[in-house]
Computed example of a mutant assay.
Amino acid sequence: MRLSSKWGRWLAVLCLLVPTALLQGCWDIRDIDNRMLVGAMGIARDDERGVTIWVRFPIPHAQQGTTSNDKGFLAASQRGKTVVDALDRLRARMPKYLDLSQTRAVFVDKKLAEEKGIYSFLDFAVRDRILPISAVFALIEGDMDPIFTRPNPSGELSGVYTRLFFEKYAGGTPQKNKVTLWQVFNKHYNPLQQNFVPLIAADDTFQFYLKGNMYFSGDRAAGTLTPDESLIYELVTGKLSPFEIETAGGANVKVETSSARIRTAWAEGRPDIDIVIRVVMKLMDASHTKPMNKQNIEQTIDRLLEDRAAKVFSVTQARESDIFGFGNRFRASLPTARHKEWPALYRQAKISVKLESHMVNEGLKLLRQ
C-alpha cells in the first residue's frame, strides 16, 4: 500500500513536468522599452492628393534625462497615399515599434471631413483593430501642427490629457459632446441617425478650445452648431450634465437636471414629432439692474431655449441630418427597406418643442415680486 502511494506521488510529479517541457517561450514579445506608444493621432488632407498623419508619443521620465528632449513628448508627421501607407512609411523611419493600441484620441481635419468624408480614412481602424475603438474622436479646424508640437501647459501625458478635455469627471462640459470611434462607426452604419462630433482648434493659452459641434449628412460633415446651440442636442437626447449656465434677463441660472418626453407618429405621410422638455434649474446670480421674479425668469428661459431649438431643427432638417436619433423611434413602423429614406423623411418632419422650466434654490437673496 505504501509502495503504491509512493509511485502515485512520483507519477503526479511526472505529469506536471511533462507539459512544462512542452511549453514554448514568448519568442515574439516586444518589451515596453522597444515600443513607442501613440497617445494621440491626427489625419489631415495633403495637397498632393494624399494624407498626412500626425502622431504624438509620450516620453517616459526615465528616458528624458538621456535625451535632449525635455518637453515630455515627441511629435512626428508623415505623408502617404492612404493612412495605412503613411503608417508604413512612418514605421520605416522609427527605431522602435509603432504601437497604436494605447491611442487616446483621434483627430481628423475639418476640410477633409467636409470634402471627402471620414469613414474611408478610418476604415483601417475597424478592419485591423490596431486602434482602440474607445478612443475619443474630434474634428480639427486649421493647422494640426501646433496641436501636436506644442507642449501641454497643464502637464504632459500625451493623449491622456487630450481625452480629459472631453471627460465629464475632468474638463468635460455638455457642449463638448464626447464621442468615441465606435460611436462614429455605429451611426455611420445606421441610416436612422447621423453623427454629431466636436470641432476644436488650437488655442494660444491651452492646447485647444471648442469651436462647436459638427453634424453630418451621410459620410461628410454638413454644418456646425455653436456650443450654445449644442445644448439643445444634450437636452433632447438626455445627456445633459449639471454644468450649463444660461443667462436670462441678466440673471444667471444653472441647469441641474432635465428630461425629455418625445412622442412620435405619422401624419399625412410624414413624421410628426412632439417634444416636451422639463428643466430644473437654480438661481446663481440675480439681476442687479433689472429685478425679475421667479416666473419671469422661467418664462425667459423657456422662450430662449424654444427659439434656439427651432433654429437647430431648421438647419439640421435642411441638411437631412438627424443627429437626435428620431429615426430610431420610427424603426418599428418603417420597413427595413425604407430605412435609407429616413434622411429625406426627417427633412419633411413636423417638429414641435415646448420647454417647461422650474427654478429651485433661489438663494439667500430673495427675488423682488
Score class of each variant (00 low, 15 high):
Asp99Pro: 07
Arg347Gln: 15
Val84Arg: 13
Leu112Asn: 09
Leu345Trp: 07
His358Asp: 14
Thr162Ser: 08
Arg35Gly: 01
Ile140Thr: 07
Glu246Asp: 11
Gly155Cys: 04
Ala309Tyr: 09
Leu139Phe: 06
Leu334Trp: 13
Arg308Tyr: 14
Thr226Met: 00
Val197Gln: 08
Lys176Arg: 15
Pro227Lys: 06
Gly80Arg: 01
Ala318Gln: 13
Leu14Gly: 04
Glu298Lys: 04
Met1Arg: 12
Lys254Leu: 15
Trp342Met: 03
Ala318Trp: 08
Gly250Pro: 03
Leu364Glu: 12
Leu235Ala: 09
Pro132Phe: 08
Leu283Glu: 07
Gly39Arg: 02
Val55Phe: 00
Ser314Phe: 12
Glu362Arg: 05
Asn152Cys: 01
Arg150Cys: 05
Gln64Tyr: 04
Lys168Met: 07
Leu345Glu: 06
Ser241Thr: 13
Ser154Gly: 09
Gln175Arg: 10
Leu11Trp: 01
Asp203Phe: 00
Tyr97Arg: 07
Ala135His: 08
Leu283Lys: 07
Val279Asn: 04
Leu181Gly: 03
Pro343Trp: 03
Arg45Asp: 14
Lys350Met: 01
Asp285Phe: 02
Gly363Cys: 01
Gln78Thr: 06
Pro95Ser: 10
Glu362Ala: 08
Lys365Tyr: 11
Ala125Lys: 14
Arg91Thr: 09
Glu48Tyr: 07
His188Tyr: 13
Ser77His: 11
Ile130Leu: 07
Gly65Trp: 00
Gln78His: 04
Asp307Cys: 04
Val136Gln: 03
Gly25Ser: 13
Thr180Asn: 12
Val106Pro: 10
Asp46Gln: 09
Gln183Asn: 11
Lys340Asp: 15
Ala75Trp: 02
Leu98Lys: 03
Ile301Thr: 05
Asn152Gly: 02
Pro174His: 09
Leu164Glu: 15
Leu231Arg: 04
Ser4Ala: 11
Asp322Cys: 13
Glu167Lys: 08
Arg30Asp: 08
Ala222Gly: 11
Met1Trp: 02
Glu156Lys: 08
Gln183Thr: 11
Glu244Trp: 14
Ala332Asp: 15
Thr316Asn: 13
Asp203Lys: 00
Trp27Asn: 00
Pro191Gly: 13
Ala76His: 10
Gly327Ser: 06
Ile301His: 10
Gly249Ala: 11
Asp88Gln: 12
Ser134Gly: 08
Phe73Ser: 06
Phe73Val: 02
Gln102Leu: 05
Asn186Cys: 11
Ala318Asp: 13
Val179Phe: 02
Ser259Glu: 09
Ala138Lys: 11
Ser158Gln: 12
